[in-house]
Amino acid sequence: MSGVAEGSILYLDQVSVSFDGFRAINNLSLVLEPGEMRAIIGPNGAGKTTMMDIVTGKTRPDTGDVLFDGSIDLTRLDEAAIANLGIGRKFQKPTVFESHTVEDNVALALKAGRGVFQTLFHRRTPAEQSRIDEILDTIRLTARRSHPAAGLSHGQKQWLEIGMLLAQEPRLLLVDEPAAGMTDAETAETAELLKRIAEKQSVIVVEHDMTFVRQLGVKVTVLHEGSVLAEGSLDAVSANPRVVEVYLGR
């Protein structure tokens, strides 16, 4: 068991969690290699978001192991500690700091000391400024930089959240439904962006949009009722009769 964990960036083994007797995650096991991008699909309520909640410390699993970097037990850490280890997350419902400007949203996420007195006396360095500019450019929000984030469209908020994710420079990115609410062109761009990110970082993407998943062109894990139903290329899992049954049967 530890043999598999070794060398992996994320390792889930026999993880289960119940909400009021309902098993949202049921004996889930999953291994992600460093530098790998994985797409996770599955019908509504399959447990995709809950899996991310477990990895990021929002939800404690009832049983099972969750290891980061082969050895760090994530079930013992809180959200901030996990984030500072280098695990970043984009939420299904885009959540940005509405009353802050677009630029401040990125600046807050920027990799830097998170201590109270570090932030109290913090002065933005030229290096940080150029990193912020670069990210704003990447997410195409340079023109909106001094506007409150509240005024962004749904798609722009998605991008801002991806920008905040980039700013954290995490080693592992968990991206929940990044293409929701985007046009086809935006969706394609998002796929390109994620592929570029995946060149250096490990990524897990949850998405319902099959065109998007195909554009990513990576290994796919199908989740159903809290456990892994199938794993492989998109074509392979699409041909899997059990997957077809789950998707058609709902």
Partner: peptide, 26 residues
């Protein structure tokens, strides 16, 4: 200060602030 911006972030979206690594309680 940047700390002031973290405070406003906590006010607007507390759990989001935790997920980018700030110890909100401190």
């Amino acid at each position: 200060s940047k700390l002031g911006k973290v405070l406003v972030a906590v006010r607007d979206a507390e759990s989001r602030t935790r997920f980018i690594g700030y110890r909100v309680e401190r």
